[in-house]
Write a protein that binds this DNA or RNA. Sequence first.
DNA 1: CAAAATGATACTAATATGGTATCATTTATC
DNA 2: GATAAATGATACCATATTAGTATCATTTTG
Lengths: 131, 131
Amino acid sequence: MKLITRDTDYAIRALCFVAKQKRRIYSVGELAGKLKIPKPFLRKILQILNKKGLIVSYKGKGGGFMLDLAPNNISVIDLIEIFQGPAKLSEHTFKKKPCPHSKSCKLKEKIDDLERYLMSELRSLTVFSLL
Amino acid sequence: MKLITRDTDYAIRALCFVAKQKRRIYSVGELAGKLKIPKPFLRKILQILNKKGLIVSYKGKGGGFMLDLAPNNISVIDLIEIFQGPAKLSEHTFKKKPCPHSKSCKLKEKIDDLERYLMSELRSLTVFSLL
DNA sequence: CAAAATGATACTAATATGGTATCATTTATC
DNA sequence: GATAAATGATACCATATTAGTATCATTTTG
């Protein structure tokens, strides 16, 4: 029952770090060193964040990454969805089809409630609020 | 981000089913048929529930399983812990040691809050309440 | 041109998930 | 007592996910 996987967690740390000096360019090596994250793994993560438009990259010597979005516009829920896919606590399907059991559907109702609560909390939890 | 895995879900369904006729003995084959769960998998699940004292078993011909605990004394959180281990949204360790970053610790605080809420909700969600 | 950076992508190891298979033991019934 | 029908215990297996590594191509600075 893991809410946040390692890559999501690393992404959050990296974004928080980068957000502290907004216009500065950080290379992967620099960030990996400061945050104690394996360099090639962090690199992959930053490339994804770049593709998704959260950070910008500069290629070539002296290049690196810089925050692109405002820290209060990046929520933990965004990062979970980027690295872990749609944020759902349960698909509630049974062999590809919606589950047909009334009892599990009571369960589904409850889990859906919890999910709504969790999602709204995580949506309001931004990089800015973590600085 | 799965709150409940398949075995936990199957266990809940089976317990709900068995709870409907408290003193009746159900064989695995019977339950597997009714609930449309693969028989050997359900068998493994029921054996675990038996070991944990939620149901009792009767060996030999005519044997099977019967509920042992009161349905309102079996909560979803118990089942999650039995099949998925300690119910935690995040271990918040970093290479086996508690994570040293203040920013992720803000994250930890928030996730711990969410966890407390989630746990208390799941603790009050019992087999009885799902009938 | 060389060095230092990212882009793209393929590969790998470990773990978790969702089961199956099998042999041993117990019990009811004939 | 033999047999059938049940669980107990345990080992095995296939697939997916997680957590990375490795490498070649491209871009940019100096």
